[in-house]
């Protein structure tokens, strides 16, 4: 029984990591680097004042 669990654990791990890598590559191709790297340090929203300004 434990052998089955072990194989399952390895398989699920490989599947999840594989999916992440696949998704990351897909995103990298579908979007421009400029868009992906566009985030800026969000330091202006300290007291929740500008929540309404930003979507």
């Amino acid at each position: 029984m434990w052998e089955v669990f072990e194989v399952l654990a390895w398989a699920i791990s490989a599947l999840l990591v594989g999916w992440m890598v696949w998704d990351a590559m897909r995103v990298g191709q579908a979007h421009s680097e400029n868009e992906l790297l566009s985030s800026r340090e969000g330091v202006d929203d300290l007291f929740g004042d500008s929540n309404r300004k930003r979507s």
């Binding site: 669990f5 072990e6 654990a9 390895w10 699920i12 791990s13 490989a14 999840l16 990591v17 999916w19 992440m20």
Partner: peptide, 13 residues
Amino acid sequence: EPYTILCLAILAW
């Protein structure tokens, strides 16, 4: 080892 890696994979996901 398999459970350690499984735990890591699920949480990272």
